[in-house]
Design a protein around this nucleic acid. Structure first.
Length: 839
RNA sequence: GCCGGCGUGAUGAAAUUGGUAGACAUGCCAGACUCAAAAUCUGGUGGUGGCAACACCGUCUCGGUUCGAGUCCGAGCGCCGGCACCA
């Protein structure tokens, strides 16, 4: 760090600490970043995921935001009317934990952090329109979060139910299924294993949108996100089949293999299945009750661990298989989950691994009803594993002999005709649990009335505000519950004394619509101003981390679709293009964390090198989509580059005005021509790379252009000793270089632009257009291969024709030697690229 | 088990449609400037052999297609991420 600090400090002139705040203030004063509706211009809503105000901006924020900013700036120079807003996802646990630990109010903690982070964010020199800032913990904001909730409730998209839910004992609150991570079932926030609790909680019916959420047409998002969301939603096609118990109760099951129905030799219910108690015979009751009790006590980790020995108990009851009226025993076992399908299965041990293991463990019949081709005839008594492969149906009553490719469809049709079953699609995704037993969140606007039940707070009474005076007790219940007065209110419907809901909402609820609040953060006639909505929505580009794939990114799509169906929004999707950046890791490859002490402080980097260097380095040093370990040394490259650009511009100034040296003559003319060509080639590549989010090559092309100008300059100096930079073409190239640098290093570009007497602001200049003719090479290097191996190169005129290229290639001594006097059998000529001589 | 992604110098990484592998940088080596160092500038830098011209090898491995493969196809290995007793 110490050695790097000296680089920019000692360079004469270029002092980022002086120029950066100067321009930031000027841009702000001039409202350069204000985004206003302008029907005459193409709009572009560029959105970056908003930060949680944890206290300090870290390098990850810079990595996510400054390349995004560069691209937003690029688009503005391309002529788009760009809106680039910023805000804070300000509700959440850390504030409350700080309150408990340090006795500071969450509100105070949060807003102090926001002030601090806003200051830090400004040092990035990003083009955020701060007048569109929104903070989710402001009552003016969460009024509308509540408004959405009430709407969802009115449209039956929110409901309350008593259920076994995931509870984090460390965060002291329930969490959504999406917020439980991995096989170990850890809390997404704090890595504590979650436990099950039976609670009355609020859910949003995201499952109603499962099918639509699987369709990604018309949105340009990474395939990876589609895969993650598709996995998460977990669609399964199969059939719903109604069995009957001997007593006549319907026993519903879902199966993906209706073609194996004739092989069902027993049934299995989840221990929690509502029919268990009624079905169990007196003889089996004690055993069944003991098993149910044991299953209830177990955690999901134990219960859902694959590969574990199967256990279960016979209920004493029998079911009737509707396809053949066969009587089969009903068991209970914890490998069947109450939360998926119907909580009951038909067991086909011959064709399902789990059922097979269970059947062998308890001596139940295994009956093959599918015979895959090319496999020896299956024998239920001797087979050692289930046969999953599809095959022709055997031993299946009227459908015996149905070939593999028709087995499922014909069975489903057959079931339908008899009213026994129908095709069904089942999803793994669950409804979104939004209740949180915490204080620092958006209150759920519901009043519980003894007579009227759960009554939504009327729109005109919103927001239901959080009380400031609150005590924290780590009880696992909402602190709001212990407030002396807050929860007592009158039922909005009947006026009787009633109690407020004391749980608050999942903060993902707040962030599901923040892009709408940015449209008009001060609007109070609705969550957003419809005029702003019509102009700006949908979001054109969205950038942020892929870790939100099955949480925020899924929730926000759901929210949008629900809003559309409720008449609040329009269009199929909220965000058209999504790009994910990777993560900056510590230099040892581990995740950066304050507790590990391996973080990189962006403020310090800015103090040492300036924001422009940090921005440029973060773009240059990584594939943006990948990220990687922090490497402090590599920033030297961009620091040096910026210094060279600065020095170059000083020499251009010294050389005088635009016409100081005209266009040059003689040897200089060629050098000027080289510079111009490099410039137009750079425009082509930089433009392409900005479009593709390839920021590392954006910067490397800009460096290359700088190097090309410097190389021509020193060649001229070595020749005639004149200053090449005085030529109009070179001066224009330098201006073009600055223009293309403007999105990457906005302060330096603006400063040097001004120093060259150009009109303020460089950020309002049009993006340069490449002239194909000027970009064209007049000399090209042809690679000459013999039998596909490079044996030489020739410099030729760009317009060379094939016979000429061929004879030039064959004339090379090394080529002659490699050919060894043999006659060419074939010559492949790729114009502008190579000549391959096959002998 | 299923579904994604990735694998290139000492390091970060480049490489339109298959067409000079390693652009642009970092680091390192040498030189210039300096009393010296830093900074800056110049040159070199994939491996092996050779004074050199040059040759051979080289993009995780093996095989294939092709005049030509980092890129396409097949099989495999390794790492990372997601899902998973999901019927």
């Amino acid at each position: 760090m110490e050695t790097q600090a000296t680089i920019s400090e000692r360079r004469e002139g270029y002092d980022p600490a002086a120029i950066e705040p100067k321009w930031q203030q000027r841009w702000e004063r001039d409202g350069l970043h204000r985004a206003r509706i302008d029907p005459e211009r193409r709009k572009h809503y560029f959105l970056t995921m908003l930060p949680y105000p944890s206290g300090d901006l870290h390098i990850g924020h810079w990595y996510a935001m400054t390349p995004s900013d560069a691209r937003a700036r690029y688009l503005r120079m391309q002529g788009y009317n760009v809106m680039y807003p910023m805000g804070f996802d300000a509700f959440g646990l850390p504030a409350e934990n700080a309150a408990i630990k340090r006795n500071i109010h969450p509100k105070e903690w949060t807003y102090a952090n926001i002030d601090r982070m806003r200051r830090q964010l400004r040092t990035m020199g990003a083009m955020w329109d701060w007048q569109r800032e929104a903070t989710s913990s402001d009552p003016e904001y969460y009024r509308w979060t509540q408004w959405f909730f009430v709407k969802l409730l009115a449209h039956d998209l929110a409901y309350r139910k008593h259920a076994a839910v995931d509870f984090c004992p460390n965060c002291n609150t329930t969490v959504a299924r999406e917020q439980v991570v991995g096989e170990a079932r850890l809390c997404e926030r704090c890595d504590t294993p979650v436990i099950k609790r039976d609670l009355n909680q609020w859910f949003l019916r995201i499952t109603r949108y499962a099918e639509e959420l699987l369709r990604f047409e018309g949105i340009d998002w990474p395939e990876r996100i589609f895969a993650l969301q598709t996995n998460w939603i977990g669609r399964s096609e199969g059939a719903h089949v109604t069995f009957r118990t001997e007593q006549g109760d319907a026993l519903e099951v879902f199966t993906t293999r209706p073609d194996t129905l004739w092989g069902a030799t027993f049934m299995v219910l989840a221990p929690e299945h509502p029919l268990v108690a009624g079905l169990t015979t007196d003889g089996q009751r004690a055993e069944v009750e003991a098993y149910v009790a044991a299953a209830t006590r177990q955690t999901d980790i134990d219960r859902e661990a694959a590969g574990r020995d199967k256990t279960g108990v016979f209920t004493g009851a029998y079911a009737v298989n509707p396809v053949n009226d066969e009587k089969i025993p009903i068991w209970i076992a914890d490998y069947v989950l109450m939360t998926y399908g119907t909580g009951a299965i038909m067991a086909v041990p011959a064709h399902d691994e789990r059922d097979f293991a269970f059947a062998r463990a308890y001596g139940l019949t295994v009956r093959p009803v599918i015979q895959p081709s090319g496999m020896a005839p299956l024998d239920g008594d001797t087979m050692t594993e289930a046969v999953i492969a599809k095959g022709a149906m055997i031993d299946s009553g009227p459908l015996t002999g149905t070939p593999a490719d028709e087995a499922v469809s014909r069975t489903v049709a057959w079931l339908g005709e008899r009213g026994i079953g129908r095709a069904e699609v089942v999803y793994r995704m669950r409804d979104w649990l939004i209740s949180r037993q915490r204080y620092w969140g958006c209150p759920i606007p519901v009043v519980h009335c003894a007579r009227c039940g759960a009554v939504p707070v009327p729109e005109e009474q919103l927001p239901v505000e959080l009380p400031d005076d609150i005590e924290w007790r780590p009880t696992g219940e909402s602190p709001l519950k212990f407030h002396p007065t807050w929860r007592h209110t009158a039922c909005p419907k009947c006026g009787a004394a009633a109690e407020r809901e004391t749980d608050t909402m999942d903060t993902f609820m707040c962030s599901s619509w923040y892009h709408l609040r940015y449209l008009s953060p001060d609007y109070d006639g609705g969550p957003f101003d419809p005029d702003e909505y019509r102009y700006w929505m949908p979001v054109d580009t969205y950038t942020g981390g892929a870790e939100h794939a099955t949480m925020h990114l899924l929730y926000t799509r759901f929210f949008h679709k629900a809003n559309r169906d409720m008449g609040v929004e329009t269009g199929p999707e909220p965000m058209l293009q999504l790009r994910n950046q990777g993560q900056i890791l510590a230099s040892d490859g581990a995740r950066m964390s304050k507790s590990r002490g391996n973080t990189t402080d962006p403020d310090e980097l800015v103090a040492n090198h300036g924001a422009d260097a940090v921005r440029a380095f973060l773009m240059f040093g990584y594939r943006w989509s990948e990220g990687g370990p922090w490497n402090a040394g590599n920033i030297h490259g961009v620091v040096r580059w910026l210094g060279r650009v600065w020095d170059l511009v000083q020499r251009v100034r010294e050389a005088g005005g635009p016409d100081a040296n005209g266009d040059g003559a003689g040897g200089d003319a060629k050098l000027v021509r080289d510079v111009v060509r490099s410039t137009h080639q750079a425009i082509q590549r930089v433009t392409h790379d900005f479009e593709e989010f390839e920021f590392n090559t954006v910067v490397s092309e800009l460096m290359k252009l700088t190097n090309a100008i410097l190389a021509s300059e020193s060649a001229a100096a070595a020749g005639a000793g004149r200053a090449l930079v005085g030529h109009r073409g070179v001066r224009e190239s330098v201006l073009t270089l600055l223009t293309m640098m403007a999105p990457v290093t906005p302060h330096l570009a603006e400063e040097l632009w001004a120093q060259l007497g150009q009109p303020y602001s460089i950020h309002q200049q049009p993006w340069p257009e490449a002239d194909t003719a000027l970009a064209a090479d007049d000399l090209i290097t042809l690679v000459v291969q013999v039998n596909g191996k490079v044996r030489g190169k020739v410099e030729v005129a760009a317009g060379i024709d094939e016979p000429e290229a061929r004879s030039r290639a064959l004339a090379l001594p090394n080529v002659e030697r490699a050919a060894g006097g043999r006659e060419p059998r074939r010559v492949i000529y790729v114009p502008g690229r190579l000549v391959n001589i096959v002998v």
